[in-house]
Amino acid sequence: MAGIVGYGAYIPRNRIKTEEIARQWGKDPATMSRGLLLTEKSVPGLDEDTITISVAAGQAAIDRAGIDPARIGAVYIGSESHPYAVKPSGTVVVEALGIAPDVHVADFEFACKAGTEAMFVALGLVDGDRVEYALAVGADTSQGAPNDALEYSASAGGAAFVFGKTDPLVDVLETYSYTTDTPDFWRREGEFYPRHGGRFTGEPAYFKHVIAATSGILEKSGMAPKDFRHVVFHMPNGKFPQSAGKQLGFTKEQLEVGWIVPTMGNTYSGSSPTGLAAILDIAEPDDLILITSFGSGAGSDSFVLRATSLLPERVKRAPTVKEMLDGPRRYLTYGEYAKYREKIILNT
């Protein structure tokens, strides 16, 4: 099977602390932070969106792959916050990265799962020898409605993966997808903020699909939780992936590296892919890695991956997730946050 020949991530520098949001709505900061296991989240700058994040992560992935971008034959951008309702994000990305024009491009949307969906399709095209390389991106600048639980988690960032058959940094050993129709979270055309089913987003949605997809891929690959060095699940908040991991028999140590949600927040389509990027930043050759995404609506994609000996030396060609999470940051007040997220209407 084809593998990942390059990967990259991007997280904006702005942050807002959970307690700052809680204070705004008269809630107890400690309770909110403890309840969601979140301390802060990334916030896009006024000049950052799914397209710019995709370009930044895509550039890092190409730099790590060390390939001529013109050889990439397919580009898929998974996001639920494409800047245009009609007009692709991917067309901008392929022009900016020097991939255009000999390339197949599409935008995907499947709530928080669009990133792994793009990976799944990119992998399949390379596997089937349709294209030499394919780029898949999961990126979002998601908005939670003010004073909604989602406001504490909805953040900005993304990760990109170049799939190819030559010199993979990571082998893809198995894939699995699990999908049902479950209306746990949605946004209708023309609506600014998404709506969700509250506690209905938990058991019948997130947990059902994450557990089914993960169990499915374990069975299909003949592997057990203990075989993996690292595992990452979609991270709508700090608690859900921890709880899913526990139910599936994974340890805290296996989850630790990819569990970046407490300081990044939920980057939706970029969530589990960015967690995967954080794992690849430190993975050693032959480490087995499991990723399971979740997208409301609802479905999960799972991948079993194995790091190759090429991986460690390529990491330094681009910034690591940790460098971006712990690097230069700017903390916003709620007022600045409202301005950055264009919740303030100006007379212009």
Binding site: R13, G45, L46, D47, E48, D49, I51, T52, V55, A56, Q59, P83, Y84, V92, A96, G327, P328, T348
Partner: peptide, 25 residues
């Protein structure tokens, strides 16, 4: 770095381009 530079008014196109970011933050 690649960024959104400006927006055309009233649902118009989004205009991208490059901006500078200090090295090493």
């Amino acid at each position: 770095v690649f960024r959104l530079i400006r927006k055309e008014d009233h649902g118009g196109i989004l205009c991208y381009g490059h901006k500078a970011v200090p090295v090493g933050g």
